[in-house]
Design a protein around this nucleic acid. Structure first.
Length: 332
DNA sequence: CAGGCGTGGTG
DNA sequence: TCACCAAGCCT
């Protein structure tokens, strides 16, 4: 927002354009390599202006970012965006907001309707939790999405990230908003490694805190701007470093873009897992408006043992409701 | 705290 | 093609 213009010449020590070719002879140049973390070579105000200006020029206009987007609209988007790409969230969010423009509208319906409306966004427990959050907001918070971090955190489905995101994006407060995009940007630009660790570390939180602008409004825009940079330019695969406003000061770039080294990240297998079976079972329940006989569910998966285990799991999660012996439905 | 939890797109 | 990835949360 606040149009700080970037000083054209970034005070970067002698690095024109090309990444420095790491010389074979390491010694000499002090560079106590692993001793100190290679900090981002940019004064804070310049860093802020650089990223904020980039955001102003490159931000996508997403409907939950418009000035008239309600806190509820922001909150719904955050639930949907937990592990689901923007492209797939867009139409689902539109439909959801048309049907349930306020928390009270959603709270008035059965949880099963939320699960059905969730469609194929994945991780349907989020739908149940969003419904639960809407009920809590309606019954305990006067129907208004809470504006403080601690209260948001107490709602079902809202963890550290989402609480910070809603407080920041919807209420323009100053919070460390640390999602996978932000963590990757800082890992590269500040720490000089391709990928952050699997779990968020205290060091990352310290780094993010140190870089956060002082003013509330600026910090809020900074948070979404760094996320956007991670989503559009500093991507996990095939980052567009040539388009990055931090190119010349990026620690990873300066180190010559060293590839990730570390334990192989566990790939989430899917074929043949209970998750796949749960998905198939729930798809049948979603599409059938009403009660579903056992036989319909039995048809989706050959292994009776695994099928029963998956269905049990859905029931204990509250995603499926047994009506009577051999009859199921979405929760009323 | 590592692992479970959906679904679809892509390099 | 087939891992890997996508604005995490919960136990």
């Amino acid at each position: 927002m606040a149009a700080n213009t970037v000083t054209p010449a970034l005070p970067v020590p002698a690095t024109p354009t090309a990444p420095p070719v790491p010389t074979a002879t390491s010694g000499a140049t002090s560079a106590a390599t692993s001793a100190a973390t290679p900090k981002l070579a940019l004064p804070l105000p310049v860093l802020h202006a650089t990223v904020l200006d980039w955001y102003e020029a490159n931000a996508r206009d997403l409907p939950w970012r418009t000035p008239d987007a309600s806190p509820w609209a922001v909150m719904v988007s955050e639930f949907m965006l937990q592990q689901t790409p923007v492209k797939r969230v867009l139409p689902a969010w539109q439909a959801w907001m048309e049907r349930w423009p306020t928390p009270a509208d959603l709270a008035a319906e059965a949880p099963g309707e939320a699960v059905r409306m969730w469609g194929r966004l994945g991780y349907p427990r989020r739908a149940l939790r969003l419904h639960g959050a809407a009920v809590a907001i309606t019954e305990q918070h006067g129907g208004e999405v809470p504006d403080d971090h601690a209260t948001l955190l107490s709602l079902p489905g809202i963890g550290e990230y989402t609480a910070a995101a809603v407080a920041s994006f919807a209420f323009r407060q100053r919070h460390v908003v640390l999602d996978t995009n932000v963590r990757r940007v800082f890992a590269r630009a500040v720490t000089g490694v391709e990928y952050p660790a699997q779990a968020t570390t205290a060091a990352e939180r310290r780094t993010a805190t140190a870089l956060l602008p002082e003013a509330d409004r600026t910090a809020a825009t900074w948070a979404v701007a760094v996320m956007e940079l991670g989503a559009l330019v500093c991507t996990a695969r095939g980052p567009e470093c040539g388009d990055c406003p931090l190119f010349t000061s990026c620690a990873w770039q300066r180190a010559g873009c060293p590839p990730y080294e570390g334990p192989a990240r566990r790939g989430q297998s899917y074929e043949g897992t209970d998750r796949q079976v749960r998905g198939k079972l729930l798809a049948v329940l979603r599409e059938a408006h009403g009660e579903v006989p056992q036989a319909r569910l039995d048809a989706v998966w050959p292994d009776a043992v695994q099928r029963a285990r998956a269905l049990d799991g859905l029931v204990s999660d509250g995603l499926v409701e047994p009506v009577e012996q051999g009859v199921y439905r979405l929760p009323q």
